[in-house]
Design a protein around this nucleic acid. Structure first.
Lengths: 226, 226
DNA sequence: CAATAGTGTTACAGTTTTATTACAAACCTA
DNA sequence: TAGGTTTGTAATAAAACTGTAACACTATTG
């Protein structure tokens, strides 16, 4: 859910803009206009993702990136570099400071958002959590109970495993083969169409009257929780 | 991720080995044992990376490399030279003719893979990225969603694949044959005019009212995303 | 400007893919 | 072990997508 995002950028107007939009999206946003300060604050607040301006007073974005990426503790924090158009992307990439993605200014907000989401998806799979939720769906691995809103839902073992797998990476599309491998197990010998049937059973179970469909069919690709 | 790699190598056993491994990794692999043929096939199939043996019957690897690198259209394709062991001279010459990297035989497969990945990341980020965008068009390969600006666009499988292919090399013009080969698959038997229809469908889908046309028709040559 | 070659557009029949259903076998659980 | 659950498959229905062909249009050429 609402991830914490840290922005390091010396142009106030950009901070304001991004912040406003990201907060609307449900993210918690902090920021700093100063490189040195930023590094300290990042270490303190442990954000889930950092937006880092390339050019900064005091300590450059490259330097912050390097520092974070060389620290075992912080290197897993994904970093998106904001670079100006003139600053030759290739050169930036070539320097290989370990940023996870780059966005060139001026950037469109939808693009930035998409990249943020892509990175968060990749770096933050809710694997180890006891209770995971997606939208109004909640799954408690300890008690093995599933809720849609406040209502408890009863699932068969396979449907439960299927949902448990989907919810680890919401929005991600999985092929039937991937689902078979991850939910049924690698060796088992089951028709791939069987997945359809279990998806149907899962859908039927979690779709309480009038509620939104949560499983998306992607033709010729598979299914996703979305 | 799903990059296409072309191998030029006269030893079948090496081809088989590399191919097997790379395909396991998710790459699409084609190959040729013959220099002259290879050059033609490379130009046709538009691979994302070429593995090039140094010594070849007919046309040497150097020559192929030179030819590709002097062509504006193909010079952006990264090339890894496979050279016999430790010939420093070769290395120098290889880099002189424009190869982007080289691996000496016998090589370890992990090393080769590492170099391939490094090169793809560096020179063709669009091949490995989760989110790719061109102008205000955006495609998310993980969720398999496509956006024009903020608006989501729904595409059928073929249109999606077509766009995914175009966006890897924006502005590059592809003939109908190249598109058939890369989007439909090598063996399939489809009229080349069918491409027109799918291009039309793609155009229709991504051209939201009042927005710029993104697919360019190049008379007697093909189409490009531009 | 007419002829020609190359593209755009459309409709549609056929095909592929997915949804749904029913059912027998396997599996629990009390 | 009886009685209910759960499972995988196969059959059928429904939906979505595909490729082709026919015709319309547009650029190019002499």
């Amino acid at each position: 859910m609402n991830a914490k995002i840290f922005i390091v950028e010396d142009e106030k107007s950009i901070i304001t803009l991004i912040k406003y939009n990201l907060e609307k999206e449900g993210y918690k946003v902090s920021s700093s206009e100063n490189g040195e300060e930023a590094l300290k604050e990042i270490k303190e607040s442990a954000p889930d993702l950092v937006l880092l301006d390339w050019m900064l007073p005091n300590l450059s974005g490259i330097e912050i990136c390097k520092q974070l990426k060389k620290s075992a503790q912080y290197k897993s924090i994904p970093i998106i570099m904001l670079t100006a158009k003139g600053e030759e992307e290739d050169k930036v990439r070539g320097l290989n400071v370990g940023a996870d993605d780059y966005v060139t200014k001026p950037f469109s907000y939808p693009e930035l958002l998409a990249r943020i989401e892509a990175l968060l998806r990749r770096s933050k799979p809710s694997v180890a959590q006891d209770v995971i939720s997606f939208e109004d769906l909640k799954i408690d691995r300890i008690t093995r109970r599933v809720y849609r809103g406040k209502k408890e839902i009863s699932l068969g073992p396979t449907e439960y495993n299927l949902l448990d797998f989907f919810i680890k990476n919401p929005k991600r599309v999985y092929s039937r083969e991937q689902l078979l491998e991850n939910v049924w197990g690698n060796d088992i010998n089951v028709e791939s169409r069987t997945v359809d049937v279990h998806v149907r059973r899962l859908r039927q179970a979690i779709n309480i009257a009038g509620s939104k469909e949560l499983i998306r069919t992607v033709r010729s690709a598979g299914y996703s929780l979305d």
